[in-house]
Deep mutational scan, measured.
Amino acid sequence: PREAYIVTIEKGKPGQTVTWYQLRADHPKPDSLISEHPTAQEAMDAKKRYED
């Protein structure tokens, strides 16, 4: 089974940042970016789909 994890990042100019959620996995390479999402819920949904 595949495993993934969610990383929170800040995008934008200082003082005007927006939080994004990255879905990452250690396949095919360590810390590979799988997808980016504007909400934590979307990231969790993507994580479930990826791991299923």
Rank of each mutant, 00 (worst) to 15 (best):
R24E: 01
T17R: 11
Y50N: 02
A46D: 02
Y50M: 05
R2V: 11
E10C: 13
K13E: 15
E3G: 15
I34P: 00
I6Q: 00
I34L: 08
E51I: 10
D52F: 13
D26N: 15
K13Y: 12
P14D: 13
P38F: 08
E36V: 07
P1L: 14
P30Y: 10
S35I: 01
K11R: 13
A40N: 10
T39Y: 04
R2L: 11
P38I: 10
D52G: 14
T8H: 07
K47C: 05
E42Q: 09
A4D: 00
E3K: 15
P28G: 07
L23C: 02
R2E: 06
M44Y: 13
G15W: 06
Y5N: 03
E51F: 06
D45F: 10
A4I: 10
R49P: 01
Q22S: 04
G15S: 06
Y21V: 01
E36H: 02
G15V: 03
A25V: 14
H27S: 11
E10N: 10
Q22P: 01
G12T: 06
P30V: 11
A40M: 15
Y50T: 02
Y21P: 00
L23F: 02
E36Y: 03
H37L: 02
E10S: 10
D31Q: 11
P1A: 13
G15I: 03
R24L: 06
V18G: 05
D52T: 15
M44C: 10
I6K: 00
V18I: 12
A4G: 08
P28S: 06
L23E: 00
E36S: 05
D31E: 09
A43E: 00
Y5W: 15
Q41C: 08
Q16R: 11
P1M: 13
G15Q: 05
R24M: 10
Y21W: 15
A40W: 15
D26E: 06
A46F: 04
I34M: 04
I9N: 03
A46M: 04
V7W: 05
L33S: 02
H27M: 10
K48M: 12
T17S: 11
R49C: 08
K11I: 09
E10H: 11
D52C: 11
Y21D: 00
A43D: 00
K11Y: 11
S35F: 01
S35L: 01
A46T: 02
A25H: 05
R49L: 11
V7G: 03
Q22D: 01
I34G: 00
A40E: 15
Q16G: 10
R2D: 06
D45V: 11
A40D: 05
Q41G: 08
E51W: 06
P28N: 07
T8Q: 12
I6D: 00
P38T: 12
H27V: 13
A40P: 09
Y5H: 06
S32H: 15
A43G: 02
D52H: 13
Y50P: 01
K11H: 07
R24N: 02
P1S: 12
I6Y: 02
V18T: 14
V18A: 08
A43S: 02
I6R: 00
T39K: 03
V7N: 04
K11D: 03
I6F: 03
H37I: 01
Y50G: 02
I9P: 01
R49S: 09
A43R: 00
T19G: 03
D45N: 11
P1C: 13
T39R: 04
R2H: 12
K11A: 05
H37N: 00
Y21E: 00
K13P: 15
A25R: 11
E51G: 06
E3R: 15
K29C: 13
T39F: 04
P14R: 09
I9E: 03
E3H: 15
P14L: 09
D31L: 07
K29S: 13
